[in-house]
Amino acid sequence: MVSQSHATAAADPFEVSEAFLKRRRLVDLTMRCILFLAASLSILVTAGIVYVLVSEAAHFFAQVSIVDFLTDTQWTPVFQEKHFGIMTLVSGTLMTSAIALIVAVPAGTILSIYLSEFAQPQVREAIKPILELISGVPTVAFGYFALLFVTPLFQTFIPGLSGFNLLVPGIVIGIMILPFIVSVSEDAMRAVPNSLREGAYALGFTRLQTSVRVVIPGAFSGITAAYILGMSRAVGETMVVAIAAGQQAKIAVNPLEGAATITAYIVQISLGDLPHGSIAYLTIFAAGLTLFVITFLFNILAFWLRRKYREVY
């Protein structure tokens, strides 16, 4: 043991030199800047998306009036007589998304209540990974499944179901977004403090009554966020509809028939070899912009709702 006195403190071998400190500060600052740039890159990505979509769509709207775009009921950009009514594609998208939500919202709500309030912890630990596995399945595989397994199966008991239709892709998308809805809403339900549950039990509520009257209202904004995010995913889902919903752009009224969605249309055009700058090429950016705006609004709304429930508890 070396006795250390004031006089020898300066000769301490572990005393850091000014030069070392300077170098260390420089490294620290450099890394801080690099990390900041990496974080800002995400803003650049959004800016890039907005720039590409808006600039290409601007060329499109220079040739097609926005009123026609929103009100025309036909979509025939590659035909001789051209029509650009986006509502045809939007109707297909809304139809599949609505069917997906009809499947996923009740099932997701029931499952998340079951997992968060009823299931034993071991059961929950076993179930959640399986749900995660579903969300890991590539969408193109779900597309194959919808077209070549579910549709033929459904055709055996639903007369009039076309080979390409909106019903089956809608249901399959519903199953695809189910794990996501369950995970977000279960997260919200578990954030409800136990003291509220105990209060309800003390009043003689059953587990189900507690779930419905205390947990769901308590987690309301989080559950809503889950539905909205699920909707956003359903709207943006591409491969299932591109494979199984058909490519005919028309106002979708009958889910048993096929119709193109926004995403399926973009895929369809991308498969062909369209010259850069042609009107058909520009349509995919106009369609993409529409899609981006819809999902953007959903995402922001959901972000705000989720932040709200995090603040409450």
């Binding site: 995400s42 990505v45 959004t46 998306i49 979509l53 995010l229 956003s232 995913r233 709207v235 943006g236 889902e237 591409t238 995403t263 973009i266 895929v267 993409g288 899609l291 981006f292 999902t295 953007f296 959903f298 995402n299 959901a302």
Partner: peptide
């Protein structure tokens, strides 16, 4: 960005 459809 996490919610932007992949096709975008």
């Amino acid at each position: 960005l996490a919610g932007v459809p992949s096709i975008i």
